[in-house]
């Protein structure tokens, strides 16, 4: 790997990427985690992200884009600071997941994959997130929120808007 002189990432992320590229029997294995960590920092997988990751892993940009387009958590456009992901798959659907989704749509004034004008929130209807026994559930960024009611959702969104939401990175 050529040393990256002008990394677009923060020094700690760049250091994490150096480490990730060194631990696997095959360097390319670091690609998917790297894309996700890059997105966490930049907000989305930008052209500059693709270029730097390709360089770090000795891949073509095409290889990176090919993988990027496959995984549903990776995006090429910015989302809100807090990405609200409401599960509507079977266990959530029958316990009120769609009510939660509709409530979020109204509350935030946006639809599926929409972003609020202030960039604070975005909304997504997502497939099963693995919280079926605590349905209905959603994630805000990486945080799980379970056994939801519309009242609970209001509180959760208010907390994030006020900067009080937990936000696991």
């Amino acid at each position: 790997m050529a040393a990256i002189t002008n990394s677009i990432f923060k020094p700690e992320t760049a250091a994490r990427f150096d480490h990730l590229a060194s631990i696997y029997p095959m360097k390319r294995s670091a690609l998917i985690p790297m894309l996700l960590y890059a997105q966490d920092e930049i907000g989305y997988v930008s052209d500059a992200v693709v270029a730097e990751i390709a360089e770090r892993l000795d891949l073509l940009e095409l290889d990176v884009r090919n993988v990027l387009s496959y995984y549903s958590m990776l995006r090429t456009k910015p989302a809100g600071k807090y990405n609200v992901q409401v599960c509507t798959n079977i266990s959530c659907m029958i316990t009120g997941g769609y009510d939660i989704l509709d409530h979020c749509k109204k509350k935030l004034g946006i639809g599926h994959k929409g972003v609020t004008p202030d960039g604070l929130f975005s909304l997504e209807e997502v497939e099963c997130i693995g919280a079926c026994c605590w349905a209905p559930a959603m994630q805000v960024n990486y945080d799980f929120h379970e056994n939801l009611t519309t009242v609970k959702v209001d509180q959760i969104l208010e907390d994030y808007a006020a900067g009080r939401g937990k936000d696991v990175k």
Binding site: I23, Y24, M26, R28, S29, A30, L31, I32, P33, L35, L36, L57, N66, V67, Y70, Y71, S72, M73, L74, E127, C128
Partner: peptide, 26 residues
């Protein structure tokens, strides 16, 4: 080594999981 995916049900299939771990489409 701990590893993470990025959203794909198909990667739960064993051979697709190996592809994903090798940095490819699942």
């Amino acid at each position: 080594i701990t590893q993470t995916g990025a959203g794909a049900y198909e990667v739960g299939e064993e051979s697709a999981l190996m592809e994903s771990l090798e940095g490819k489409r699942g």
